[in-house]
Design a protein around this nucleic acid. Structure first.
Lengths: 245, 245
DNA sequence: AAAGATTTGTCCGTATGTATG
DNA sequence: ACATACATACGGACAAATCTT
């Protein structure tokens, strides 16, 4: 039988990073739950068909993330294995969906501005080109770990005080409520994945070079009128998106 | 104002690949639709804060993918910008969902075997540990381009001839029908993103080092009894997953 | 308690890939 | 195409800590 190496050379992604990705996945899959230890470096090296030093680089990156801890003579322990599961459904609410997974969920307003609608945001929100929008950049942390980084657009005519309310309430749902919108539903969600850019690395406090899951979503009021268009980036190695159908 | 470089060094992902990722995203966002041309190398180099050679490596990779074409003295043209949109809903069907986006969708059986249920597959399918399962590795191509690579598990007791039917019919839906299951629904879908492994690179014919979107899904019959547990990998730069709620 | 096996940590050198100018 | 600097990956040798017999 041929050895499956599962990693590739000379492709613009360093071997140690590919290997770190795969070990991270194994951890979150519970592959090492029996012993709570990652296999020895030599064994992993054989498994992936690389030098032990390369595996060490991968493990160093995971240790940096706080995911594992190496002890000389003993081995490398798994320290955490949680992945936040983000529910996506017709009634997607950030804080509600996570409330049973984490103690503390906190959202912060990074920036906001008023601007005219572009082609993209206008069609998403069913507005005319150039109508006033409010843009808000927000980030959410679960138990202190940043998990999402969102850019949202709201029709300024209908929700003029979005930013002020959000700053005070720390929640989109509550900010809508404060402006007379009691309920809203998710009408569409698109999902793409790509490498994080420098901005996302910084705000999500990602181990550099990481992957982000991006959701492009539209929320509407009960009558179907769009009220929010948002692009949210999640740290791909810290979350799974869970669709409820 | 500080220049946003949007790329980072020394992170295990080569600059040229990060830049290729970002240009690919810009293309699929339609940023270059006006002219149909990618900005000149020098301009891109300035934009990302790197040397022109580095941008050239990125463009070479995109040209290799067939996404752009450089012409001496003229510039670099965008050749394709499509991204397949994969619908995910309660009634997710691969071929139906794509039928209005591509002419020809084709599925192939790569391998199959009978094996006892592991902890993971048993819980997903509501079976006891060790009960017989059928595993099938399949891949689907849209107009000749591979888009998905799936590993599915079926209870062998109920669907003993899954592989034979699939080989003939090229469709899970039809194979179920041939064994007396007229309808089924998607009950859960989890989504993660990570770097592709060598196996996925080969079967999806990915430009190496690419990212895959993985969906972990369970389908059930109308009575809610699980009939299929599957892990599907999509080329992240060729698809968006679209949730319908 | 001692010896040997296992496992991580450190140091050397060399070849190739990546990025700049 | 050339030159330069640094990152990546490999290989080997040995030290240090821990576990097993």
């Amino acid at each position: 039988m041929v050895l499956k190496k599962n990693v590739e050379r000379q492709i613009g992604v360093a071997l140690w990073r590919q290997i770190a990705d795969r070990i991270r996945l194994s951890i979150s899959n519970g592959d090492y739950d029996q012993t709570g230890m990652v296999p020895p470096e030599i064994k992993l090296a054989g498994q992936f068909g690389v030098n032990r030093h390369t595996v060490r680089s991968a493990l160093a990156a995971l240790a940096e993330e706080g995911l594992v801890e190496a002890i000389q003579g003993r081995g490398t322990m798994v320290r955490r294995k949680e992945r936040l599961s983000f529910p996506i459904s017709r009634r997607t609410r950030l804080s509600q969906g996570l409330s049973n997974q984490v103690r503390d969920i906190r959202s912060r307003l990074l920036a906001h501005e008023e601007l005219p609608a572009t082609a993209e945001s206008a069609t998403a929100l069913g507005l005319n080109l150039g109508e006033k929008l409010i843009r808000m950049d927000t980030t959410s942390s679960a138990d202190g770990r940043p998990v999402s980084y969102s850019t949202s657009y709201f029709p300024a005519a209908r929700f003029p005080d979005m930013a002020r309310h959000f700053e005070e309430l720390g929640s989109i749902t509550k900010s809508f409520a404060a402006q007379g919108l009691a309920d809203y539903v998710r009408v569409s969600t698109e999902i793409v994945a790509r490498h994080a850019d420098a901005n996302e690395l910084a705000t999500l406090k990602l181990s550099a070079g990481a992957i982000v899951l991006e959701t492009i979503a539209v929320n509407a009021d009960p009558d179907g009128v769009p009220v929010q268009y948002s692009r949210s980036r999640f740290a791909a190695d810290r979350v799974t998106l869970k669709m409820e159908t």
